[in-house]
Design a protein around this nucleic acid. Structure first.
Length: 938
RNA sequence: GCGCGCUUAGCUCAGUGGUAGAGCACUUCCUUCACACGGAAGGGGUCGCAGGUUCAAGUCCUGCAGCGCGCACCA
């Protein structure tokens, strides 16, 4: 690159490099390359809905995965990031149904029939599926796209069927008529996990049921009072229950009352389930519409009267006044009729929790139906591997190491989710896996069609066939119409995507995977079930670390939602700011384990950051010239204090970044990167380096006494070598977060030159991750803390000098003359750096300087810096300034002195802390003297 | 009811016992030859409240309050 444009323009750059990486197969994982020297590293993507669109949640989640994958590649691992999509049964079917209805193609899917309808869904999938994959590419995701999988791929579907059959044969899958969570909008059963309990302000209606003398006889004047939140269900009541211990009602047990509106005698029964302390102590029993009531009905052999149908409307059994009404309309109608008949005792306001379908957002209807259930497999190892709260456990070995089922084998980040996981695992209830949908994996079970002539004797037991292939005499059988819960396919994701049940090379090399990145909202749906499936079908855990992201919310803390319209389109943000900016801004504001309040300003900050990085590299091109090679040797003898300081800061940054990565603290990594690059490299080092660089530019000899032009050029080259060293390291540190701009600069500035192709020569993607200096290197470059201290003292004095400029309202552009009364020897080069940083015309060194009365001063360990401004200074203002500073200093002295005067402190504190405090005190005392002298001089 | 999290600058949040931090916003100044998507300086904090442990607490412990979330639910 000969010349860089003034600002960074991401659009052209991003497209170009993504294609470059694809062309060179940089994302492709090869199991053959895995070996002891090149460990495998694998992540499987949480498959997004195939017809979904990219959200900020996806951005966060996939950026983290991409960072992990890119970092692992730079660490020399063979990386597989396996992508794919999920068929998302209910969501996808609902979208297609809605669209077809809107188009007038059907009123209900039954009109089209299963085959026709599924054709439409596949059409939809072909049209909209894969959009999200394209969007992930825009984000820079380095997935191995050659291995993209879909949960409805033929091979994947075979895995699902195989697993069903295996679990069926083990007796873990069974069919049963049960009370399930019914979604009347989607008209399907749901699992317990798909029901959200939402607090709702409702009513408690107290109803009067007239007592009968005996069954079928006339009513007495007596009543039983029952309370309900759902009066419409009373149409299906089959009993009134009381607690057998309840003295108040004992004499009623065995009698009957008359169910109002239905005019049906129902018995009064005794059951332990009734809490005598709640309400009236009498419970109406609706066996077909309440799970508890169903249990009671089983025990008492009560009939089931279904009054609410699968569509949420009242059935004919509800009576002609109510049939066809929606359940909420029916509620109003029932209350009205009971009121008219004087059977409504009272209505109380009542706050209670109502189950809502997570999918359709309508109230769940408990509904009795025939469903398939799974008794969870491998619960014991799956519980144990997470249970032990992995905090103290050592970081697991790289994948491929010896396997164990030890507690702590899977680590959660943050760890606290382990508790949630364990709690759920210990209270498992069988999983309802059948769905009354068409889009999904059809239950691989066939029922024998009724024979033409049933035998005269006892009817033959229904015959069931379960297999991955249809039964041989298929014509005699009918397949179960239901499909399986989507999660029943995605729980196989980590191995079904790698060729299972074959022991493929991929599976051997990359399973178990290293990290899983997902949201805590699917810890039960997906994470827990994957762990169980891993143990059950692979015999080992599916991953070693689970990183739980926070939930992205808007500025006001609300969840992102379509209806609120508060969910920005990530692609628009990428178009506006660049993918790197979106990634960096998101990661910077995403602390481990906390929700993220999204603000577009974060992305703007990311863009500004990229622009700054761009310009820092532009500066390098400008001062060194585009043709200067980037691998210049650093000569330790020529290093300035600024050089040594920035190399030490780089060393510190690398160490901090490594530590943060080890704990998945990505926002900490970004903060360190930000601080090092902006506050340390740009703000101080680049500015200080201009002293060396500009000097030689002007062709004047170095300010160093005795240095000739040749040495000036050598110093200049050395500074460029330091700049290149720092930038080359920095680009690599930034790469996992900012893949595009770092590649552009890596290639453009020539850092790839002279490197082997597989170590950064072809792409920064495979450049080696920077290492901190070892002791020998530190020794070689003389990078001791003292080297840094002199630079820092200089920067401190510069800041104070600049402050003088501000305090006395001297415009930033005005060249000033300073006088320095040095406390130590100060090399000419150091002085020149100070002069530049202070934007001073000159700094005069005068050890015997006697400042005119009222000359403002800034002081630290380097000496006293005066700003002689004869006659310009308001003595009062200067006194106020110095007095304020003195106050600060004396407060610090008092604090330090108090500690050091405390015998407890000096006796118990560790030596290095004691020394710290002593030095601090001495430092403040020296400053106190300088400031006091300044005050005296006024 | 049980569990988890949060409470630090105007806002959003880092902070891992040892001198209270960042970004944005604010005030003032500067278009100085990398960058105005920039630079410089500055103002702004009894770290939710009350106890305790410690030489030392924003940080550890206990209790309380407010907010949020999860699980479990009695009609």
């Amino acid at each position: 690159m000969s010349e860089l444009p003034k600002g960074y323009e991401p659009q052209a750059v991003e497209e170009k490099w993504y294609q470059y990486w694809l062309d060179r197969q940089c994302f492709v994982a090869d199991p053959a390359r895995v070996g002891p020297a090149r460990p495998a590293y694998a992540i499987v993507i949480p498959p997004p809905n195939v017809t979904g669109m990219l959200t900020l949640g996806h951005v966060l989640n996939n950026t983290i995965q991409d960072i992990l994958a890119r970092k692992a590649r730079m660490d020399g691992k063979e990386v597989l990031w396996l992508p794919g999509t999920d068929h998302a049964g209910i969501a996808t079917q609902a979208v297609v149904e809605r669209t077809l209805k809107k188009q007038g193609a059907m009123k209900h899917r039954e009109e089209l029939g299963r085959e026709k309808f599924l054709e439409h869904v596949w059409d939809w999938k072909d049209k909209h599926g894969g959009i999200i994959i394209q969007q992930l590419k825009k984000l820079g995701a380095s997935c191995d796209w050659t291995r993209e999988r879909f949960t409805m791929d033929p091979a994947y579907s075979k895995c699902v069927e195989r697993v069903f059959v295996e679990l069926y044969r083990k007796g873990l899958i069974y069919r049963g008529k049960r009370m399930v969570n019914w979604d009347p909008a989607a008209r399907t059963a749901l699992s317990d996990e798909e029901v959200d309990m939402l607090e709702e302000k409702g009513h408690l209606w107290h109803l009067k049921y007239p007592l009968l003398e005996a069954a079928g006889q006339t009513a007495t004047q007596e009543f039983v009072a029952v309370a309900t939140t759902r009066p419409e269900t009373m149409l299906g009541d089959e009993a009134v229950a009381v607690n057998p211990q309840d003295e108040r009602y004992r004499q009623l047990v065995g009698r009957h009352c008359l169910l109002p509106l239905q005019n049906k005698p129902i018995p009064i029964i005794a059951d332990e389930l009734v809490d005598p302390k709640f309400g009236t102590g009498c419970v109406k029993v609706t066996p077909a519409h309440d799970p508890n009531d169903y249990e009671i009905a089983q025990r008492h052999r009560l009939p089931l009267t279904v009054v609410i149908g699968p569509d949420g409307c009242m059935t004919p059994a509800a009576g002609e006044d109510f049939v066809g009404l929606d359940r909420l309309e029916a509620r109003r109608a029932v209350v009205e009729q009971l009121t008219q008949q004087g059977l409504l005792l009272k209505t109380e306001d009542y706050v209670h929790n109502v189950g809502y379908s997570q999918r359709s957002h309508v109230p769940i209807e408990p509904y009795l139906s025939e469903q398939w259930f799974l008794k969870y497999p491998s619960v014991e190892p799956a519980t144990r591997c997470v249970e032990a709260g992995s905090e103290q456990a050592p970081h697991p070995d790289a994948p491929g190491g010896p396997e164990s089922l030890a507690p702590g084998a899977i680590r959660f980040h943050p760890d606290r989710w382990a508790k949630t996981y364990t709690h759920w695992m210990k209270n498992l209830r069988d999983w309802c896996i059948s769905r009354q949908l068409w889009w999904g994996h059809r239950v691989p079970v066939w029922y024998r069609k009724p024979a033409g002539q049933p035998a005269a004797g006892d009817p033959p037991a229904p015959q069931i066939y379960c297999g991955t292939e249809p039964p041989p005499d298929a014509a005699q059988w009918e397949q179960d119409p239901d499909v399986l819960d989507t999660w029943f396919s995605s729980w196989l994701w980590p191995f079904a995507t790698m060729g299972w049940p074959e022991r493929t090379d991929t599976l051997k090399a990359f399973y178990p995977t290293a990290d899983l990145v997902t949201g805590p909202d699917i810890i039960f749906f997906w994470v827990a079930r994957m762990i169980m499936a891993g143990y059950e079908f692979m015999g080992e855990l599916p991953f070693r670390n689970v990183y739980f992201t926070g939930i992205i919310r808007d500025k006001l803390g609300r969840k992102m939602s379509k209806s609120l319209g508060n969910s920005p389109d990530p692609l628009e943000l990428i178009a506006k700011y660049g993918a790197d900016a979106l990634r960096f801004g998101t990661m910077r504001s995403a602390p481990l384990g906390q929700d993220i309040l999204f603000d577009e300003q974060n992305v703007e900050l990311g863009r500004n950051f990229c622009n700054k990085l761009w310009n820092a590299c532009r500066f390098r091109q400008m001062v060194a010239g585009p043709d200067t090679p980037t691998e210049g040797e650093i000569d330790p003898a020529l290093l300035t204090s600024d050089d040594r300081w920035i190399l030490l800061r780089l060393d510190t940054a690398i160490r901090e970044i490594d530590a943060a990565f080890a704990e998945y603290r990505f926002n900490e990594v970004t903060q360190t990167l930000y601080r090092f690059f902006w506050s340390e490299y740009c703000d101080w080092y680049v500015e200080a380096s201009k002293a060396t660089l500009a000097n030689s530019d002007r062709g004047t000899p170095s300010a160093e006494p005795g240095a000739g032009p040749a040495e000036g050029a050598a110093r200049r080259a050395n500074t460029v070598a330091v700049i290149d060293f720092v930038l080359g390291h920095m680009l690599r540190l930034f790469h996992p977060f900012l893949p595009f701009i770092t590649e552009e600069l890596w290639q453009g500035l020539g850092y790839r030159e002279s490197l082997p192709a597989d170590q950064g020569g072809a792409t920064i993607m495979f450049a080696r991750w920077p290492k901190p200096f070892d002791d020998a290197e530190k020794e070689h470059f003389r990078l001791d803390p003292a080297a840094a201290q002199s630079a820092e003292a200089k920067y401190d004095l510069v800041s104070k000098g600049r402050n003088l400029r501000r305090e006395f309202n001297l415009p930033a552009g005005k060249k000033l003359k300073f006088v320095l009364k040095p406390a130590t020897d100060l090399p000419a080069h150091e002085l020149e750096v100070m002069r530049l940083l202070l934007h001073a015309e000159t700094i005069e060194i005068d050890a015997a300087y006697l400042p005119p009365k009222g000359t403002p001063l800034a002081a630290n360990a380097l000496g006293e810096l005066y700003l002689p401004l004869a006659g310009l200074i308001d003595a009062g203002a200067e006194r106020a300034r110095l007095t304020k500073e003195l106050g600060k200093i004396q407060a610090e002295i008092a604090k330090a002195q108090a500690n050091l005067d405390n015998p407890q402190f000096t006796a118990k504190v560790p030596p290095h802390v004691l020394e710290q405090h002593q030095q601090r005190l001495a430092g403040w005392q020296a400053k106190e003297k300088q400031v006091q002298a300044g005050l005296a001089n006024l």
